[in-house]
Design a protein around this nucleic acid. Structure first.
Lengths: 156, 156
DNA sequence: TATATTTGTTTGCATAACATACAATCAAAG
DNA sequence: CTTTGATTGTATGTTATGCAAACAAATATA
């Protein structure tokens, strides 16, 4: 193991002792950093609207699929039921959406946007456009498509 | 049931009001989902070791740079000081590392791995290898390099 | 009918980001 | 030197999220 080198020196990947490479070579590490950078910029962009990524995603999906159930929402966003509950509760407390009992399945909650939710979603989409522009500024259109494809393979 | 979904849950998204595309076209959305999938698999892989991504990253960096200060660590991992504190505290409570006052700067904490930390890091690197294999299984070597490059552009 | 599954809910715990305030230390200016 | 300002670590509190476990209501299935 190479130790005690200068902090910013880049280690030549010379150790063929079966050991794993530097942390810089770990794909998961870069995914986490990229996500962090993305989240940070998102949060800045949405300070005025006071919405998180998850909350925007939920509003967006409820708008796209009026009457969607919490479980369906959870599956699409890869959340569990308890987490979904917390998010829906917060959005409902702000009167952005409401729960309505499903007609033909008493277990399900049919989610619908409230007027305030429609309003804030429109503003959110504008903010998302800015955020996406910031994110995509470093890529060509071809690279964006490529990145979308690669990322989709991870979460699908 | 298919019948239910038609009636209640999923409506064809018809309203293309000319603004932003579907949520599926949002790059940030896919980054978050990919990160979530990655984090979920990581957590499963590390249930026995009881370590998080952040904690492994910190152990790794402290091993690579013995005597590193918390601020330096924070900068490399894009965390703030308070968050770094919490993580260091947890690792110290497990006797994975220790704080030692820096010789030349009384403000800084020089971080060093304890024997238990060296031990658990070795196991962690094995687990990381598995995790990375799972992650990279869906890509060719060329695609991995490409993805690393694209992601680095986001967080650098 | 009896049993199993689904869905939502509640509670509790852990991680983590962030803000704020504070103390100790160091650096720089006078 | 002293004063001032910046850096570093620390303590505290808030918020968001994720997950597990337990429970109730409604539905599905044997």
């Amino acid at each position: 193991m190479v130790k005690d080198r200068f902090a910013d020196a880049i280690a030549p990947a010379e150790h063929d002792d079966g050991d794993i490479g530097a942390i810089k070579d770990i794909l998961g590490f870069h995914i986490r950093l990229a996500h962090g950078a993305c989240l940070r910029h998102f949060t800045e962009t949405f300070t005025d609207l006071d919405l998180t990524q998850k909350q925007v995603s939920v509003l967006w999906l409820v708008d796209d699929h009026p009457g969607i159930a919490q479980t369906d929402l959870a599956q699409r966003l890869r959340m569990d039921r308890a987490t979904t509950m917390a998010i829906i509760n917060r959005l409902q407390a702000k009167h952005y959406l409401r729960r309505m009992r499903s007609d033909h399945d008493g277990r399900k909650q049919a989610l619908h946007l409230d007027p305030a939710g429609v309003d804030v979603l429109a503003k959110a989409k504008t903010a998302i456009r800015e955020h996406e522009a910031w994110l995509k500024a470093r890529f060509s259109d071809k690279e964006v498509k490529l990145l979308l494809d690669l990322l989709a393979r991870i979460h699908e």
